[in-house]
Amino acid sequence: MSTLRVTVEELTVHEHPNADALELAQVGLYRAVVAKGAYRTGDFAVYIPEQAVLPEGLLAELGLTGRLAGAAANRVKAIRLRGELSQGIVCRPRALTGVDLARAHRDGTDLAAELGIVKWVPPVPISMSGDVEPAPDLLPWIDIENLKRYPTAFPEGEPVAITEKVHGTACSLTYHAGDDRIQVTSKGLGAQRLALAEAPGNLYWRAVHGHGLPKVAAELAGELGASRVGIFGEVYGDGVQDLGYGTDGRRGVPGYAVFDIAVADGDGVRWLDPQELTRVLDGRLPVVPTLFSGPYEAQRVRELAEGRETVSGRAVHLREGVVVRPLSGRHSTELGGRAIAKMVGDAYLTRKGGTEYE
């Protein structure tokens, strides 16, 4: 998931092609449906992104009581309104009356706490949960921001790899070379520096042992001279999320695909570049499909985010989206960290009966 930030943004307003009383307010590459005449291009307004949970008072003020997603009808989700995709909410809450919106935009002020907005945390199925233990020396993964919010994160022409985003649940394994120890966790628990106690029915441990991750991690530590190796992959299959890729995740060995590797030594933590990752694994573990490798083109990314998945080899359902990273790793000032971002497909966002476990 992306980081939840509620910020003031400068709008670009477009005509709605299918509704005389509506318009489209653009933030980055996101577009939100708004009432016609409410805003003009160049205006500043608050942008509330997807996965935000709104308090009752703000829902009532915006006329959205009972109209959003989730059991409590208070969660922002992408929808189509009169045929146009609307992602997020554009508004000017009364709580910000008197606030210099232009200055808040320049400062990048996060208004989530002031407005009582929190990030939605999906419920965790029993197969993905379990007893946990403190793990301060884990190598955790990071939140990946959406290119629609940060459209200039990659310059046109930069050499990049575009991989398919697999709809499963992220599984992290950290191998400690000093005492031949492994720690396994999910993305959400890893962010809290918690590891899952080994249990035969746990989904993550079934994937770890079923695909032989401990052995591969130990081999990589020796080959790369690392004190710790982090292998990050997506566990998938029927019973894991609503898109199963034709794999049974309920019994036996669920599907698994590596999307990142980190190695730690005396100089800190290093993330393997895309081509290095494929080379050092040398077929020992399945890897997420690479859809394109070459010069970055924004239009190509948008096109590749849509269509059918390639994980199963049979295109059994739609594609979730893509992840973009440079062929040579670097820091991104715009993203505030590692240069890596995602784009989620419009068809995926508006599918029926979707699940979003971390």
Rank of each mutant, 00 (worst) to 15 (best):
A298P: 00
E219K: 13
L277H: 01
L224F: 06
V34P: 01
R181G: 00
A78G: 14
G28H: 07
Y348V: 04
A35H: 11
R31Q: 15
Y204Q: 08
G210V: 10
R206W: 03
A170F: 09
G108L: 06
S86K: 05
V34D: 01
Y150H: 13
Y150E: 01
T7Q: 12
G233Q: 02
A71L: 13
H176A: 09
L58T: 07
V216P: 02
R338Q: 05
V160H: 01
P140F: 12
V280F: 04
L96K: 02
A257T: 03
V27H: 02
K36Y: 03
K36H: 14
L101I: 04
G116C: 10
L64R: 10
G28L: 10
E297N: 10
A19R: 13
D273K: 03
V166R: 00
M128C: 12
Y47F: 15
S227H: 13
P155T: 15
E306H: 05
Q183G: 08
Q87D: 12
E145N: 12
D242K: 03
A218V: 04
V8Q: 00
I144P: 00
S332D: 00
R75N: 05
Y150R: 00
F259Y: 14
R193H: 15
R181I: 04
V324L: 06
A217V: 04
Q26K: 15
R40S: 14
F154Q: 01
A78L: 05
L62M: 14
G246Q: 07
G168D: 03
G283M: 09
W120D: 14
A95D: 08
K148S: 08
